[in-house]
Design a protein around this nucleic acid. Sequence first.
DNA 1: GATAATACCTACTATAGTAATAGAGATTAA
DNA 2: TTAATCTCTATTACTATAGTAGGTATTATC
Lengths: 171, 171
Amino acid sequence: MKVSQKGLYALQSLMMLARHREQGAIRIRDIAYEENLPEKFLELILVELKNARMVESARGAKGGYQLRRAPEDIRISEIIRLVDGPLAPFGDAESLRALIDRDVEHRALYQLFLEVRDAAAKILDNTTLADLIAGPLRRGARIKRTRKRSSEKASELGVLPMGMRGKASHE
Amino acid sequence: MKVSQKGLYALQSLMMLARHREQGAIRIRDIAYEENLPEKFLELILVELKNARMVESARGAKGGYQLRRAPEDIRISEIIRLVDGPLAPFGDAESLRALIDRDVEHRALYQLFLEVRDAAAKILDNTTLADLIAGPLRRGARIKRTRKRSSEKASELGVLPMGMRGKASHE
DNA sequence: GATAATACCTACTATAGTAATAGAGATTAA
DNA sequence: TTAATCTCTATTACTATAGTAGGTATTATC
């Protein structure tokens, strides 16, 4: 796995959106300014994140971007896979498993690659956007909290899709 | 970290040289044939490995390549760093540590990257060429053996630089 | 309904990295 | 001397990376 500059920008933008979650839609320009990112490049990244249904956008005046899910439910592994591809250092988990089965000569090598992938996946699957924007915590504590709370928290916060803002409240 | 095709070829070549260690210098053509690698591309890779003092070459007829160190002493991390750069998913360990100190806003993110790097380094530092060419072992066993024997084994085998083959024996 | 603010879309550029291939030159064992 | 090697320099084709530019569509607000 290699995280590109673009991947870094995606992660930083999403962290920013997570921090400003209560403020509704945030303009591209504000994200770019606060995170110090090239605005036009960021545009392309946000479209990609939108197509992957990780954020949603509002067009026109007062438009902008916001997260579609609670930060507790967005794993860092998901973001990296989306922007920069598989976590494995070579190929992806599936093809590595196939090679381990078929290529007897190099089995040990591919197994090693898979070990590295699994180690990365373990860390990145168990860390969410919420973990990254929280204050500093001991590593053990962070991972434990994610595992415990990641699924259950979203339902507690009354998170609604953007189209329902305002409308749902008076129906 | 990303292992390129070139990195894979390097690893496969070195595993092959490790397997044929007792046979002295091996021709590029034979490595390419046995490992099914593009010969001219392999040439360039071997020069790189030679410049890094990981293998040594003999020119002219009966020439070829061989390892300069015992397979027990060649860590996979070293090979990957050589050919494909740092193990970290973004930047390198040093610059990540610097960012963790300086960039307060993104500290948690860089710390995460460093965790991933450390996990990969732990695996790849503790696996050697010897481990990869040995028969299948349980993972725990492999790592334990490497840790125990990596340094002490080289001195037991009478490993001599290539220039000394034959000569030293009758001096 | 006009206007300004915003996201959206298409195209383009520049640079570097990847994965080779080609061929002539230098060195050495036999 | 010669054949077998490694060595060196160039070149090619393709893809990825990291942006920039500018017009188009949509929407809140007045």
